[in-house]
Nucleic acid binder design. Structure first.
Lengths: 212, 212
DNA sequence: AGGTTAACGCGAGCAACTTCGCGTTAATCG
DNA sequence: CGATTAACGCGAAGTTGCTCGCGTTAACCT
């Protein structure tokens, strides 16, 4: 009891981090070849060189793996700031389209959505992940409100959901390619809808919008 | 060889149809309680009273079951015809929202999307199913074009995709309830976008738009 | 440097899912 | 009405996926 490390300490440095990186890299590459359907624990073990039992111990299964990969997916898409909302929307929309041109990223989203249907833990992760993104990119809208470009009670999160929705419809339902045309039409549509006041706050609840 | 029924004939009448109906009903109810995650072949066998081996023989697995159920899902949503496109869009949007208030329907869509990620056959089914629906409800837009309400080269299928997208985003990504507010904002947004000409045909291809 | 103990490698063992062969039931037709 | 044969019921066998116990490696601390 003289030592400080005592009982159940976690040990994140060195080897642990290295195996994690190797495994997640293997998952990402494997997703590129055959998608989630072909994603077997055994294949990942082979490709990463990490033993099968270790994978099950740390990640429980393929659901856990893709979830971990999603959280580690850095926000490669920068926050646009062109000065006007329609341009910001267009830039962001194009960036999303480019983002999903990569089969590995596309398959990753498919995988997490599929996992979320089966596993409540994955569902929570997915929800919070996109909520954070919506909040982050919602700054575009907040700035536009401050500039007086759009109605003052425009809800940034609704706008960002509207911007993303067509892409995920294309990915998951229509199951077609995410092409530049989709990016353009989506940006145009959202801008028109925002101007028309389609995304006002508290459509369902009444009152108490902050008077700041 | 004198008989006409000869070799490998299928036999759709009577018992076969009855078991199919019993099984699909069991799947539908089971989806209501616990969703796709809790959908086990054995549970369906118990609830429907059909033997496990029969289920595997006819449907291969849970993916096949939910796919069959989707195709049998009759179009309960009628085609609106109020006289103006914005009203038609609003009525249809509300109908979709009501449609997905039923947990069984919601879980069914989740299940098929999840299955489509894993099974190419389910993916094809999903794509064609929604393509047919888009084509069907696209008549709303075609009529509006004929009335001169919207730009002549408005693409009906794009409009219908735009109308559906926010609901599936809510269902699959945000994983929240489909509330009336979503229906209203979606209808308003799509109408504004259509007026702004966001959904013109052949954004990606050049030239040769038909001169009628 | 040396001790302690997470984290990993390894193979066997367990459990759930899926399929197979055969006998039985009930559509379909002469 | 009687013959034929899909489709189904039944239990057992086969396969896959996952877990467990134990020995080994290498971080972390003094």
């Amino acid at each position: 009891m003289t030592t400080a490390q005592a009982s159940g300490e976690t040990r994140p440095g060195g080897r642990t981090a290295r195996t994690r990186q190797a495994v997640l890299a293997a998952v990402f590459e494997e997703l590129g070849e055959g998608g989630f359907a072909a994603l077997t624990m055994e294949k990942i073990a082979q490709r990463s060189g990490i033993h099968l039992a270790t994978l099950y111990r740390r990640w429980r299964g393929v659901e856990g793996l893709v979830c971990d990969l999603l959280t580690g997916l850095s926000a490669d898409v920068p926050l646009p700031d062109t000065g006007t909302l329609p341009e910001d929307l267009r830039v962001l929309s194009r960036a999303i389209a480019v983002f999903y041109r990569d089969d590995r990223r596309r398959s990753l989203i498919e995988a997490v959505v599929s996992a979320a249907v089966r596993d409540p833990q994955a569902a929570t992760l997915l929800r919070t992940f996109f909520a954070e993104r919506s909040e982050l990119y919602g700054r575009l809208v907040t700035r536009a409100v401050e500039r007086g470009e759009v109605p003052a009670d425009t809800d940034p999160e609704q706008v960002m959901a509207a911007l993303g929705a067509p892409f995920y419809y294309r990915l998951l339902i229509a199951r077609g390619a995410v092409d530049p045309a989709l990016a353009e039409s989506t940006a145009t549509a959202v801008w028109a809808a925002v101007r028309a006041g389609a995304y006002k706050k508290a459509d369902t609840a009444d009152g108490t919008h902050d008077g700041r």
